Simulated assay, not measured.
Amino acid sequence: MQRSHGWATGWNAARVAVAVMVLVAVGAQLASSTAEAVGQGRDVATVVANFFSFFTILSNVSSAIVIAWLGVRFFARGRRVEVDPPALATALAFVSTYMIVTGVVYNLLLRGIPLQPETLGWSNEIMHVWGPLFLLLDVLLGPARRRLPWSAAFAAAIFPIAWIVYTLLRAPLITNPTTGAPFWYPYPFLDPSTGGWSSVAVYIVVIAAAIVALACGVIAIGRARGIRMPIDPAPGERDAR
């Protein structure tokens, strides 16, 4: 199935479609959040900066870019079924990990939290359920996976750790535009005022470990499937044989 041109064509078309769907969901939510900020007289620049400080938003945007790139590249190269180049394959493994983490964390820790008035339900579901689910399916079913080194699993943790450091340094410097509190944390489990720094530290360790573990799983699946996915010869080479 992986080597079928029909399957590869359909899956890459799905990648492009899902990328568009995710970007539409992000754009619609940004527009809704901005409109609410204007209507309530909040600082729009802060609201926009906060919007792009959510790991969910960063994961969705980056994954949409990567899968769209893969899909467009496939069609631009004449629908040739060939192993993804190393940099693109690594980026795909990373964003797949981040999106799976996004889906798991949201549905386990944040699903019961009431949504803000400006939150669009359909957009929220795309970013937290359907987008992550597609990236999981891409790991399991996507064509032309490359066998990546195990070290890539640990490299996958670099961006989330950098995001956590950025969040914890920035949060005390931002006035919450909704409540007026002298701090703003994108997620309750990172807010030390709710459970203390010990609770925050535990969540950080658990999430970091989960990211590395999931990245190992993503890479393990890619390695197992990649063994059975040699590079297809170019059309001219195929004819010469």
Rank of each mutant, 00 (worst) to 15 (best):
1 M>E: 12
3 R>K: 08
3 R>Q: 14
6 G>K: 09
6 G>V: 14
6 G>H: 12
8 A>W: 05
13 A>S: 10
13 A>T: 06
15 R>H: 13
16 V>S: 01
17 A>I: 07
23 L>D: 03
26 V>E: 10
26 V>L: 15
26 V>D: 11
29 Q>F: 05
33 S>L: 12
34 T>C: 07
37 A>K: 03
39 G>M: 01
39 G>Q: 09
40 Q>R: 10
43 D>Y: 03
45 A>E: 15
48 V>S: 03
48 V>L: 00
49 A>F: 04
49 A>R: 10
54 F>Q: 01
58 L>G: 04
59 S>D: 03
62 S>Y: 06
65 I>V: 15
67 I>M: 06
70 L>A: 10
74 F>M: 06
74 F>Q: 02
74 F>P: 04
77 R>N: 15
79 R>Q: 06
81 V>T: 05
82 E>L: 05
84 D>T: 12
87 A>Q: 09
87 A>H: 09
91 A>I: 04
95 V>R: 05
98 Y>Q: 00
100 I>F: 08
103 G>Q: 00
103 G>C: 03
103 G>R: 00
105 V>G: 01
108 L>P: 03
109 L>D: 08
114 P>H: 09
114 P>G: 07
115 L>T: 10
116 Q>Y: 01
117 P>E: 11
117 P>R: 05
117 P>F: 06
124 N>K: 06
124 N>R: 07
124 N>Q: 14
124 N>E: 14
124 N>D: 15
125 E>C: 10
126 I>L: 09
127 M>T: 12
128 H>E: 06
128 H>Y: 08
129 V>D: 12
130 W>T: 13
144 A>K: 01
144 A>Y: 02
145 R>D: 03
147 R>I: 08
148 L>G: 05
148 L>Y: 02
151 S>I: 13
152 A>Y: 10
153 A>V: 07
153 A>F: 04
156 A>S: 12
156 A>V: 08
157 A>Y: 11
159 F>E: 12
161 I>M: 13
162 A>D: 04
165 V>D: 11
165 V>E: 12
167 T>W: 05
168 L>W: 14
171 A>V: 09
179 T>E: 11
180 G>V: 11
180 G>L: 04
180 G>Y: 10
181 A>C: 07
182 P>T: 06
183 F>E: 11
187 Y>L: 02
192 P>V: 14
193 S>W: 07
194 T>I: 15
194 T>V: 15
194 T>P: 06
195 G>N: 12
197 W>S: 05
198 S>N: 14
198 S>V: 15
199 S>F: 05
199 S>V: 02
199 S>L: 00
200 V>S: 08
203 Y>G: 03
204 I>P: 09
212 V>I: 15
216 C>W: 01
216 C>A: 10
219 I>Y: 00
220 A>Q: 08
220 A>R: 07
226 G>W: 09
227 I>V: 15
227 I>L: 14
228 R>C: 07
228 R>H: 13
229 M>Y: 09
232 D>N: 04
233 P>G: 00
233 P>Y: 00
233 P>V: 03
234 A>S: 09
237 E>D: 07
240 A>Y: 05
241 R>M: 13
